[in-house]
Nucleic acid binder design. Structure first.
Lengths: 195, 195
DNA sequence: CGCGGGTTTGATGATGCTCAAGCCCGGTGG
DNA sequence: CCACCGGGCTTGAGCATCATCAAACCCGCG
């Protein structure tokens, strides 16, 4: 089986998963293609679906009252995408999610997602693992943001997230790190001169 | 039943929980008292237990190579405490967790924690809810840290976390917010003058 | 050739840090 | 009862870092 989702479940769960079970799992998903720069979720909408990214790149961002954009998450192939708060609470999203490249996803509703967790132990285990990793990664991001300066944050980003680094332009990465594109450009020059 | 844990499970799960089941759940926990300023977890140790705080206040912090402390999490009554990364991965913790007040906890090992999730649906649901809230809260913290200046972060902290505000001194809150105690002191004066 | 998106650069200013000193206050021991 | 101590908070001077804004540049593409 060469479905990316199948591989993903195998990787993040130790419970066996039979072919026919996976086939059933797949029936709960809806394929969806999104052209570059189209919304997966817009501020004010309730996030009804979780998406699994087969192909593409996406970003999640927040717009403040001065119309500044802050990119809070980036997503590429084999990532789950949703706004957690809106999805869990069924409240209007404070964030936007859109595609940075043409993308292919498979979508599933919250109800079906929960159903799959109850019915298939391997699916459930995969979700637990994924959530745990999410918690660890986000916590790490907080720690880095309060303990590192701009340059060290950027260096750490390059080291740990090459898969993002190759896919998004500098000003997107700057926003993700909470620094201005100008500062990022300058510190890149400084770093280049050092080596 | 007036056990704080019982109330907690009821609050964070919609599945019924029978008295005798809860009694069984409790047998998996180990009571533990910790005097003020003693460690729950020290850097380098593997986090073997999750603790549920019955009484007390704790902090989790990171020490960098210049010996600066960065407080990354605060905990009070009715919170679960652990270092997630060390607990999940069974790797040496990069963080310290200690008590800020005399505290009473009940502890449970990872194996037993997983056992309870499998055996008691209400326990499992409570854990899911708790993890989801954790993800939402931490994500929010990231968003705030990249989009707000020091003053607005502090104001937001006061508004959203009075239960921490009352329990920890200023310099601890400053560290939690990623700003220096001096800056916090100054912006408090500025804010006072405004009103 | 011109356009658009992305990056660089300079000038300037705001924000927050560092370090050292002093203050306040509650607790303790003589 | 007073002196002292320690923890926490405040304050000032000087400095480092980073943001802002505007302009220029670069390059791929229609």
């Amino acid at each position: 089986m060469d479905s990316p989702l199948y591989k993903y479940i195998k990787e993040y769960s130790s419970t066996p998963l039979y072919q026919e079970d996976f086939d059933e799992i797949l029936t709960y998903f809806i394929p969806k293609k999104l052209k570059k720069r189209s919304y997966f979720l817009q501020e004010g909408e309730v996030c009804e679906y979780v998406g699994f990214i087969i192909k593409g790149a996406m970003r999640e961002y927040y717009v403040d009252n001065k119309n500044r954009e802050y990119i809070v998450n980036l997503y590429v192939e084999n990532w789950w995408v949703r706004n957690r708060e809106s999805w869990v609470m069924s409240t209007p999203s404070k964030y936007n999610i859109d595609t940075w490249e043409d993308s292919e996803l498979i979508l599933i509703t919250k109800e079906n997602f929960i159903k799959l967790k109850e019915k298939f132990p391997s699916f459930n285990e995969m979700v637990t693992t994924m959530d745990e990793r999410n918690i660890i990664a986000t916590q790490n991001r907080v720690t880095l943001s309060i303990s590192l300066n701009a340059e060290d944050q950027y260096q750490n980003f390059i080291d740990k997230h090459e898969y993002f680094f190759k896919r998004f332009p500098q000003h997107v990465i700057a926003s993700y790190l909470g620094i201005s594109k100008d500062t990022l450009s300058r510190l890149r020059r400084r770093m280049k001169n050092k080596n």
